[in-house]
Design a protein around this nucleic acid. Structure first.
Lengths: 348, 348
DNA sequence: CTGTTAGCGCCTTCAG
DNA sequence: CTGAAGGCGCTAACAG
């Protein structure tokens, strides 16, 4: 059975001829080169001609054929987005706002998932490049830096939630250290002195920074951080349960816990529930990320807000700028965190 | 300031010539047409030649230039995904599995967000078509059916979570009626007789179906559904809070609530918490969708599982099939729901 | 069965 | 400043 139908179908349905650069050339009574020139602003053009062309473009509702542009060695009007693990609440939120920003920019977004896996990431990135994306937004991920840097030199690229030495101007990242500090400070302010910490994946820069903030806050309050107060999680809910279990079975005494993200905080909270330990009456919890659910936890979870909207918008604005040719216009970006005061009471 | 850099950049970095159909033609010592033929399996080719070509393709690690294919009037190796409101947990989960299925298929996914808005949806869909996507997966949404049907006749297209009259073979949907019935039945089995229902958006087919299931379950248990037991929500958490408030202030008596989705269930649960009404001791709640958080709610939420993985896989398998030319191979699909027995106790 | 040829729509030298 | 012409990589007739 022959299956050449794909192409025939295409041909049939595109019978409705799209207006091409030729059409507007004719209407504006100039050559196609001139049209191309005004379209891309790639060379000076007589004012009269320019206007004629622009008029024609508007009148005929011309849309450039992406494939032709791409073939001609040019631009693909496509922005590649390398994300990690779709359906992770935080990254989805950022992704959402990034897409939001790309909409109406004339660009399309093609997204690839790196799964937090170096090999996968590399492959996904590769496939994006093969698609001749004009720029790339890399959200999180753990690709080799060397590879990224090489690419970053050759094409518009911004990094979200990741610090790349020497490319800070392309990194949109959060001051995780301060975030951890503030969270801990918040508990200290409430009178807590024995504060445990469920940290994220031990090798994860964010996890390290948050923990660092936690420890510094303690020290600044003249409290010596206890190694036993810190237990490692995986940023997942279930790891939060385990972490809390561990803290409890180890017989540690503490009146509050700072979890390095909300998902682990949820897990921790469940572990306490199972043991009939009240929150926040017996133990207080503060999370991190301000997941949508946080306000609906019982009791509502105090947490650190990740300004995903700002992050997303900043990221798109950045590549769009780079794409537009405003090079290095992006400054080192740092977004502040906000303590969201939950409805729940805090111990003491 | 001239900004023609985009193209120059492209040109520079693609200096690393990609192998073209010509290269492999040369290596296999055949004409480019023959190569094209074996590549697309678009016509019979001598076995010897075919092998030679395949060998060359493998040896040179040839990857077709998508833009050239597209320009030549052919295929774009791209699947368009029209989704609704990214960062909605349920749709994200489906999206995740869809992307998962597309990965390694040779196709790329370009996604557009319809925002649950007819105009937006139409525009997004339009932009996908302009990109010459080879097929489209429409997840949810509320585009005009007429438009969709017209398109569906012209190109591979499948619908997820939506019923389109006459195109059932392209719809991957859930039996929401049965879902609602089972949820209610579950409560009845636990001895509840007065069961309230927080329904979704009143015009939403799923919401209607779930409510219908709810009512039928009651009737089958010889309980006449009370209009006052049903209050409309918006599928959002906060609307769940309001809905529960409404039920309580109206002075309705009920021992259990069936919320049309988990997000509203969370909201309802919070409303009860604020009023110091215990769950499930005083009132039981059952949700719908089995959001990741459900198991971490306090107490863990009993809910109806949406098999997002199956849905996603089925959807991709379907368009991939359509794309491959196996037309109408997709049968009317209906996926069952599973009651996930939560950890928490249920009233009585 | 196979090679040759004419575009697809657009960008970019290259002469005016 | 502007038009003409070549080519990007690939497919689809068209003749063998």
């Amino acid at each position: 059975m022959k299956t050449l139908s794909q192409y025939t179908i295409k041909r049939i349905m595109s019978e409705t001829k799209r207006v091409t650069i030729q059409d507007i050339a004719k209407r504006a009574d100039v050559s196609i080169s001139t049209v191309s020139r005004v379209l891309n602003n790639s060379a000076a053009v007589g004012e009269a001609h320019r206007q004629a062309v622009e008029e024609a473009v508007a009148a005929l509702d011309y849309r450039p054929n992406i494939f032709a542009k791409g073939l001609a060695g040019g631009v693909s009007m496509t922005i590649g987005i390398l994300t990690q693990n779709i359906s992770s609440p935080l990254y989805d939120a950022i992704l959402y706002h990034v897409l939001q920003g790309i909409r109406d920019s004339g660009y399309s977004a093609i997204i690839a998932d790196g799964q937090w896996h170096p090999d996968e990431s590399r492959q996904s990135l590769q496939s994006l490049l093969e698609r001749q994306v004009d720029g790339v937004i890399i959200i999180g991920g753990n690709n080799e830096e060397a590879h990224l840097i090489e690419l970053a030199g050759a094409m518009p690229m911004v990094f979200v939630g990741r610090h790349i030495e020497g490319y800070e101007h392309l990194c949109i990242c959060i001051d995780e250290y301060t975030g951890g500090y503030m969270a801990t400070q918040h508990l200290l302010d409430r009178g807590h002195r024995q504060i445990a910490h469920i940290m994220g994946i031990a090798t994860h820069p964010d996890a390290i920074a948050r923990r660092h903030g936690y420890e510094c806050a303690l020290r600044d309050a003249s409290i010596e951080p206890q190694a036993a107060w810190v237990v490692e999680g995986q940023f997942t809910q279930s790891s939060g349960v385990l972490a809390m279990e561990m803290l409890l079975t180890q017989g540690q005494t503490f009146s509050a816990v700072f979890a390095a993200n909300d998902q682990m905080a949820y897990g921790a909270r469940l572990a306490l529930f199972r043991r009939h330990i009240r929150v926040p009456d017996d133990i207080s919890i503060i999370g991190y990320d301000d997941q949508p659910h946080s306000g609906f936890t019982i009791p509502p979870l105090t947490t650190m807000r990740q300004p995903t909207d700002v992050i997303g918008r900043t990221a798109t604005a950045a590549i769009l700028d780079l794409l537009k040719g405003n090079p290095v216009a992006t400054k080192p970006l740092t977004v502040d965190l906000i303590v969201r005061e939950s409805v729940g009471r805090i111990y003491r």
